[in-house]
Simulated assay, not measured.
Amino acid sequence: MNYTQTFFLRQFLWKIGRIITLGIACLLFYFDVFPFPILIVAIAFGLYSLVKTAVLDIIKERKIGAELFITIAVIMAVLGKEYLAGAVVLMIILIAEYIASASTKKARSSIKGLIGSVPKTAIVKKDNQESIVQISDLKIGDTVLVKAGEKIPVDGKVIGPIEASAIHLLPDTLVFINSIKLLRVTIDA
């Protein structure tokens, strides 16, 4: 799923609808096309999710979040007869909340993908014999065989001159394991 698809997932459609509704209401109120009551309804529609989150945070988690302060600020703007300013501030906050939600969703799916791509085992060479061990069982000093395309979450030094991908490496050369096709690496960290 690419970044653009993430921004238009079904779960975000209500957020997009609130932003568009509030934006259109602000614009039409500014040009005297919409009367005051319709702007108030649009503000209430936009404010609904923030009020719901603020109330649930207070009741269930006993915490006061940004949603409560944003709700209070918008209500104070409306009570102070700054209807358009309150609506525009609310729209900006809704846009920021939408971007944060979509970005968080994308980051979580990327992290899940990375976690799933890390191998759980490695090939360890000891006494001219290769054995498969769990990554968590690797110790400093183990020699790990890294094959083409494999990503092993260890750092180390090349132990012996090895030619790989037309690159000549010398002993004690620090390498990034994913940059070479086949290596024997002594784990040092």
Score class of each variant (00 low, 15 high):
Leu183Val: 08
Glu67Cys: 00
Ala96Ile: 05
Glu82Trp: 11
Thr53Asp: 07
Ala100Trp: 12
Ser103Asn: 09
Lys81Gln: 12
Val78Tyr: 08
His168Val: 14
Gly46Cys: 01
Tyr98Gln: 02
Ile58Lys: 09
Leu68Met: 08
Asp172Arg: 00
Pro119Tyr: 07
Leu84Phe: 06
Leu50Gly: 00
Glu61Gly: 07
Ile70Pro: 02
Ala77Trp: 11
Ile92Asp: 06
Ile152Ser: 01
Ala44Tyr: 04
Leu47Lys: 01
Lys181Cys: 07
Ala102Cys: 10
Glu67Pro: 00
Leu183Asp: 05
Thr121Lys: 13
Arg108Ile: 00
Val154Ser: 03
Ile123Asn: 15
Leu79Tyr: 14
Leu68Pro: 09
Thr53Met: 05
Ser131Ala: 10
Lys125Tyr: 07
Ala85Val: 05
Ala100Gln: 10
Ile111Trp: 03
Gly46Ile: 00
Ala77Asp: 02
Ala107Phe: 00
Gly156Val: 04
Leu183Phe: 01
Ile115Asn: 14
Gly116Thr: 10
Leu183Pro: 00
Met76Pro: 07
Ser179Ala: 13
Ile70Phe: 06
Val51Ile: 14
Ser109Phe: 01
Val51Thr: 05
Gly86Trp: 01
Thr104Tyr: 12
Lys106Val: 00
Lys81Gly: 05
Ala85Pro: 02
Tyr83Asp: 12
Val185Gln: 02
Thr71Ser: 07
Gly149Val: 04
Lys151His: 14
Ser179Met: 11
Ala77Lys: 04
Tyr98Asp: 01
Glu82Phe: 13
Ser101Arg: 02
Ala102Glu: 06
Ile180Ser: 14
Ile180Tyr: 08
Val146Met: 04
Asp172Ser: 09
Gln129Trp: 03
Val88His: 01
Leu145Ala: 14
Gly113Phe: 11
Val88Thr: 11
Gly86Met: 07
Arg184Ser: 14
Leu114His: 09
Asp142Thr: 02
Leu94Cys: 11
Ile132Lys: 08
Thr173Cys: 13
Ile93His: 08
Phe176Met: 13
Arg108Ser: 05
Glu130Ser: 03
Met91Asp: 10
Leu47Asp: 06
Ile111Glu: 09
